[in-house]
Amino acid sequence: MKVNEVSWSDLEQEVAHTAFQTAYEREINALIQEVRDNASKIHELEDIWSFHNFLSARRHEIDGKYDYNYSVLVFVFATLVKQGWLHLDELKGLDKEKIAKIGSLSRM
């Protein structure tokens, strides 16, 4: 199966969209909590610039990771599973081959 040429049924698209949103919300909520925890530690100007750099890096990372393009979605899901933002069982409804590929890639 060439993952960039895989078709997605209507059901798979719904499952994928829900899983994608779930992972995104988890990561964003974790980031918001981290921002709240770290904002209280700002005491000097240098702390502000460090915090700014941290936020810029995280924004770049998150914007690059969450690509809802069906040609790369298997890879996106594998990354999200590997990082713990998504669980394979949340992808039930996808084709078994897709789930197997995501599982394999997440262990690399």
Rank of each mutant, 00 (worst) to 15 (best):
I42C: 05
Q33H: 13
E34S: 05
D63Y: 03
L86W: 07
F77A: 03
E5Y: 14
N53I: 04
G93V: 01
S71W: 06
S106V: 04
D10A: 14
K65P: 00
Q13I: 10
S50I: 15
N69G: 08
V81R: 05
L88Q: 07
S71F: 06
D95I: 02
I28L: 11
E44Q: 14
D89A: 09
E97L: 12
W85Y: 15
N38Y: 05
G103D: 08
L94F: 08
I99T: 07
I48C: 10
E27K: 13
L80A: 06
D37G: 01
V15A: 00
T79C: 10
A57I: 02
E27H: 11
E34D: 10
A100T: 10
E5I: 15
Y24Q: 06
A19E: 00
K101G: 02
N4C: 10
N29S: 11
L86D: 09
K82M: 09
A39D: 15
E34F: 02
W85R: 14
A19N: 01
Y24I: 03
A78S: 09
N69I: 13
H60Q: 14
R36W: 12
T18G: 09
H52W: 10
K101C: 01
K98N: 05
D10N: 12
L45E: 06
Q13T: 07
V74Q: 12
E44S: 12
L11V: 13
K82A: 14
D37E: 09
E34M: 03
Q13R: 13
H52P: 06
R26Q: 10
R107L: 15
F54M: 05
M108I: 12
K2A: 14
Y66M: 06
S56P: 01
E34L: 02
R59C: 02
V76K: 09
F75D: 15
N53T: 10
G64I: 01
W49A: 11
V76Y: 05
A78C: 03
H17E: 14
V15L: 03
I99D: 06
F54P: 00
M108Q: 09
K101P: 04
L105T: 07
S104W: 13
I42G: 07
G93A: 04
R26K: 14
V3W: 12
R58L: 04
R36L: 15
D63R: 04
A16N: 09
G84T: 02
S7F: 03
L80K: 08
W85F: 15
A39R: 15
K92F: 06
K92R: 12
K41E: 11
D10W: 10
L94P: 07
A16Q: 08
Y24L: 08
A23G: 03
W49S: 13
S104I: 13
K96Q: 10
